[in-house]
């Protein structure tokens, strides 16, 4: 399912909003989550899961192609942990 298919599916269920409105809501939803994570905040959606940022230290690495030593800068990476409800749901329907 892609984002436009998601918008389609939600539009079919929520009839008092136009497809365009749903699109704006879906976009704003994911944009606000990105913005929050970019600030380093975590995002917690009850029943779905939580997103947080972990910091990775810089380290000495090697270019696997040329064998050259390079320094890999420290960076932040996003992590997701599925919530209890979704964990149970994906295992009970098979």
């Amino acid at each position: 399912m892609t984002k436009s298919e998601l918008i389609e599916a939600v539009s079919a269920k929520v009839t008092n909003f136009s497809r365009k409105d749903i699109e704006v809501i879906v976009d704003t939803l994911f944009d606000s989550m990105s913005a929050s994570l970019s600030k380093g905040d975590k995002v917690e959606i009850r029943g779905f899961g939580s997103f947080k940022i972990k910091a990775r230290d810089g380290r000495q690495g090697r270019n696997p192609k040329s064998g050259e030593n390079i320094f890999i800068e420290s960076k932040k990476v996003p992590f997701f942990k599925a919530g209890k409800e979704i964990r149970e749901r994906i295992n009970n329907s098979k």
């Binding site: 399912m1 998601l6 939600v10 909003f17 749903i22 990105s34 029943g47």
Partner: peptide, 24 residues
């Protein structure tokens, strides 16, 4: 609407289908 968005995502995943949100 927001509840419904997450519900659709959960239902899709439950069926074993992946959900791709471009840009996210």
């Amino acid at each position: 609407v927001i509840e419904e968005i997450f519900e659709v995502v959960k239902n899709t995943l439950e069926q074993g289908e992946k959900v791709k949100i471009s840009g996210f």
